[in-house]
Amino acid sequence: MDIEVWVWWLIGAVALGIPLVVTAMPEFGMLALGAAAASVTAGVGAGIITQVLVFAAVSVALIGVVRPIAARHRAQRPQLASGIDALKGRQAVVVEQVDAGDGGRVKLGGEIWSARPLDKSQSFAVGQEVDVVDIDGATAVVM
């Protein structure tokens, strides 16, 4: 019982798919797709040289094109701000006058924070909305 060449290419594609699942290395998947393309080439009756060239061309093209795109997407994951970084740039409401002398208090993120103005000459009245520029220890720097 002879196994046809296209079946061998499919077996190769499956064999390359196993390390893809085990190691999560996408290159194995790209090689598996190259083997699947060679299987189709063998199925339509092309010679072994054409099959190997199709395998190599598809595999190299996928690695050369898809891999850099995947790496770029992996590097561009959105950064979620948390903790103090999440408070910077938000608005707060003054609950106790904020000035350079004694500072003051603002309501920021549902909590009362001590606050001081970014510019020492500024003063903010109760009820005024201010922007949080920075957090210095437990003090919100506002403007």
Rank of each mutant, 00 (worst) to 15 (best):
S39T: 02
A35M: 11
I11V: 14
H73L: 14
D85V: 04
G101I: 13
V7I: 15
L10F: 15
I11G: 03
I49L: 15
D2T: 09
A15S: 04
P68G: 01
V141H: 11
G12H: 07
D102S: 10
G64H: 03
S121P: 05
R105A: 09
L31S: 03
V40Q: 10
V132F: 11
A86V: 07
V21E: 00
R72I: 07
A24C: 15
A100C: 09
S121K: 12
L80C: 07
A86I: 07
P78R: 10
V22P: 00
A36Y: 08
Q97F: 15
M143Q: 13
D136R: 11
G64D: 03
V7E: 14
A75V: 05
W8M: 10
A15E: 01
K107A: 13
L16M: 13
G104N: 00
A35G: 03
T139R: 12
Q128E: 14
D99T: 12
G12Q: 11
V22R: 02
I18F: 05
A37H: 07
R90V: 05
V60I: 12
L87P: 06
R67V: 06
I11K: 06
G12T: 05
L20H: 13
G137E: 04
L31R: 02
M25A: 13
L53Y: 02
G64R: 02
M143S: 13
G109D: 12
A56I: 12
K120V: 08
I18R: 01
L20I: 04
V126P: 05
R105H: 10
F55I: 08
A86M: 05
I63N: 09
G43P: 03
M25R: 15
R105N: 06
D102M: 13
V126K: 10
A100Y: 11
R77M: 08
V95R: 14
R67P: 01
R116I: 08
F55P: 08
D99G: 13
G101P: 15
K88G: 01
A100N: 10
K88T: 01
L108K: 00
G45C: 04
A37S: 06
G64L: 02
P78A: 06
D136E: 09
D134F: 13
A32Q: 07
I48P: 12
K107H: 10
G12N: 09
V52H: 15
Q122M: 15
V95L: 14
L20F: 15
D131L: 12
A138R: 13
G101V: 11
V21F: 10
P26M: 15
